[in-house]
Simulated assay, not measured.
Amino acid sequence: MRHISSIYEKGSRPMNEDRVVLHEEADRYAVVDGATGIDGIPGELAASVLAQNMEQPPGEVELLSIVKVANETLGRKNVREYGGDASIADVPKEARSTCGIAAIQLNEDRTLSYVQTGDCMIFVQYKDGSIRALTYDHVAQFDDIALKRLEETRERASGGQLLNDAIFEQEIKPILLDNRRKLNTKEGYPILDGSEEALDFLDWGTLPLLNVDRLLLLSDGLQLPDGKGDGEIWMETARYAFTYGLEALRDRVHQMEEEDSDCLKYPRFKKADDKSGVLISL
């Protein structure tokens, strides 16, 4: 018998920009991670649009089509929020409300349809215990550029220096702006932002559920904080979730965040990110 567990929790900032979709009637599940534009439109807009579209009745629309329509809706809402310009192309990339998504549809023919973009992840565990990352985090390498600059800035300051508004504006914000302006290009990373280009960079497909035991969807807020920088932290996170469960993973992340409340040991931009996850036992 199928068992589904989930985590949905706000981080250290006032607004939760994650969403979780548990549409059991349609066998459709997703985690959505909204991202606020830099001095722009809140990420909650994008996350809400994608999550609402995922709630469509079963059997009427394919998963990929749902995401495409949701992206079109997001484009119109970004334009409206920015000031009624003619098209999404008139809204600067850095101002747009955007989101990553990891969505799956369990089909009657024992296949799995999936759509992913951004830094939300999908993992598959087989009956022999082996784990497969079905998706790739394209965002991490760009976050690392800004985090390395943050570390360098702290090292230059005597006794270490916490992130403050001045450091952000002078050292970090220009990097974040540069990263944002590369959205949905071959030099950047994929994300849903309401543009046609976003659809060109979706990771989507179908997987036969042969000997599959469990499925895992995670937003990056449930990723174990990474102090090693070895690129394997996502797989370590998935192994932890499959071994101990989502609640235990959440508690472990909490513990690491509390032990490093100044974000020095595990460099990050905020003490705690929004957290969303779905674990499905088939």
Rank of each mutant, 00 (worst) to 15 (best):
G118I: 09
V212A: 10
A238G: 05
L218N: 00
L50F: 11
D178H: 13
Y126D: 13
L282W: 10
V253R: 03
L282H: 09
G277E: 00
T36M: 10
Y8H: 12
I172P: 01
I175P: 02
H23S: 13
V69P: 00
L147R: 15
D85N: 03
E259F: 05
S5D: 14
S281Q: 15
L279N: 02
V253P: 00
I38M: 10
L192N: 02
N71K: 05
A133K: 02
E232S: 09
D85V: 02
R76T: 01
V278F: 03
L147V: 06
G129S: 10
L224R: 14
D90E: 11
S6Y: 12
E72C: 02
E81R: 11
L282D: 08
N164E: 12
S97V: 05
F242T: 08
E236N: 11
D213P: 01
T111M: 01
A86Q: 06
D213T: 03
K228M: 12
R132H: 11
L63A: 07
I280R: 12
L150K: 15
N71A: 07
I191A: 04
D274W: 11
L177T: 09
E258F: 05
A102I: 10
I88E: 01
L22V: 14
A47F: 09
L147K: 15
L183S: 02
A46T: 07
F269A: 04
A157S: 14
S6H: 15
G188R: 07
D90L: 01
P58W: 12
W234G: 09
N184C: 06
A51S: 15
D220R: 01
T98H: 00
C99Y: 00
R214W: 10
C263R: 15
D220C: 03
F201P: 06
D143C: 03
S113G: 08
R250E: 10
A248W: 05
S87K: 04
N78I: 02
T185N: 13
F123Y: 15
I41A: 01
R76H: 05
A89P: 00
V49T: 08
E94R: 15
V253L: 09
N211D: 12
E169Q: 15
T206V: 14
D260A: 08
I41Y: 00
S113I: 07
N71G: 05
I122A: 06
I88D: 00
T243G: 03
S97W: 04
E171R: 05
R19N: 04
K68S: 11
E72Q: 15
K93G: 02
A198W: 02
P58T: 13
I104G: 10
L216G: 04
L183Y: 12
N211M: 08
M121V: 10
K173P: 03
G221V: 08
L112H: 01
E232C: 05
N211L: 09
S113D: 14
L177Y: 12
R132S: 09
E108D: 14
A70P: 01
P92R: 11
N71M: 07
S130G: 06
L147H: 11
S158T: 07
S219C: 10
D262A: 11
L63N: 05
L162V: 11
N184W: 05
D27W: 12
